[in-house]
Design a protein around this nucleic acid. Structure first.
Length: 297
DNA sequence: AAAGATCCCAACCGCTCGACC
DNA sequence: AGGTCGAGCGGTTGGGATCTT
């Protein structure tokens, strides 16, 4: 019990009590002690009823704050660390369908929180939209995402798997043949959360339980029709599949300006710099960084 | 080495929705 | 029908970490 500072509880009206309660509430970063209290309490009593939980656990936090701390940080199944290439691909794909529905998107990335995905989107995706001088919601940027970034991620995933062996790929939980890069298509209604979903039974256990990288890649090699790609930006002329690498290696004249982007053609050395420099960072947009660097745009 | 700029992420805020009375 | 409460969502912010000059 705190030392009496002169405020007699019996003499306080409701407003004063509320004020005192507000003053007692802690805000800002959580301490280790608070974390332990919350973890212990939830392990004993379970989660839910956050306001009373906060009170009963003896935490001077709002229920909201406790809930957020638990869901975003303390939950045992929360995954930390860098967003993987597979996760990036999934985020782009799902965002193209649902927009800023972070919690919905998070359902398909086990262990990732809506907050984390939102932060990723804000820091990484919007940053690059800004670099490209276009709005993140603009058609130009969406096209660049759909035709460049996502296929690039698939290539990187494939390259990674080729060197490090098969990897479990986070996927929307449906057969890859129905993963589309166009809004409104695909299997929205059939999507199931990955991993954490214990009651999910694959339609075709042989292929659906884990969407192999090759299938993802195959999808992104679907024919690009003239209608979809009127400028022939992504068609290499080799069969009907577009070759992302080639389009990167030799972007046609006015390639970027087709997107309304004020960028200059890249010379061959820079291409190699990019192809090698993609590295493990998973930063497709290095290609643009190089442009800005070399051309002092 | 230091100052300023930028990045990143944990946490907060305001709002909405659904359940319950 | 309308009020209250708990829960969840998306947007925003504060501040530490890192990078740049």
């Amino acid at each position: 019990m705190d030392v009496d500072d002169g405020n007699c509880p019996q003499m306080m009206n409701d407003d004063q009590e509320d004020e005192m309660e507000m003053e007692e509430l802690r805000r800002g970063p959580w301490t280790v002690e608070e974390d332990l209290i919350l973890i212990n309490y939830i392990s004993l009593h379970g989660e839910g009823r956050w306001n009373s939980l906060a009170h009963l656990a003896g935490l001077k936090r709002t229920g909201k704050s406790c809930r957020l701390r638990w869901l975003n940080y303390l939950r045992p199944d929360v995954r930390r660390g860098n967003i993987t290439l597979e996760e990036q691909l999934l985020i782009l794909e799902l965002h193209s369908r649902w927009g800023n529905r972070w919690s919905k998107i998070a359902q398909y990335l086990p262990g990732r929180t809506d907050n984390e995905i939102k932060n990723y989107w804000r820091t990484q995706v919007q940053k690059h939209a800004k670099q490209l001088k276009c709005d993140v919601n603009s058609k130009q940027f969406k096209d660049a995402m759909q035709y460049l970034w996502m296929p690039w991620l698939v290539e990187r995933i494939q390259a990674t798997s080729a060197t490090s062996g098969p990897t479990a790929v986070a996927s929307p939980g449906c057969s890859t043949s129905t993963i589309t890069t166009t809004t409104g298509g695909g299997c929205d209604n059939n999507l199931e959360p990955l991993g954490s979903s214990s009651n999910w039974v694959p339609e075709n256990p042989g292929t659906r339980a884990s969407c192999p990288i090759s299938e993802l890649t195959d999808y992104y090699r679907l024919p690009v029709t003239e209608a979809q790609d009127p400028a022939g930006r992504f068609c290499s002329g080799q069969g009907s599949s577009y070759q992302f690498e080639q389009s990167l290696a030799a972007p046609p004249e006015g390639y970027y300006s087709n997107y309304g982007l004020d960028l200059q053609p890249m010379d061959q050395s820079n291409n190699y710099q990019y192809m090698d420099g993609g590295g493990t960072s998973g930063n497709f947009w290095n290609v643009e960084d190089i442009w800005y660097t070399n051309h002092k745009i």
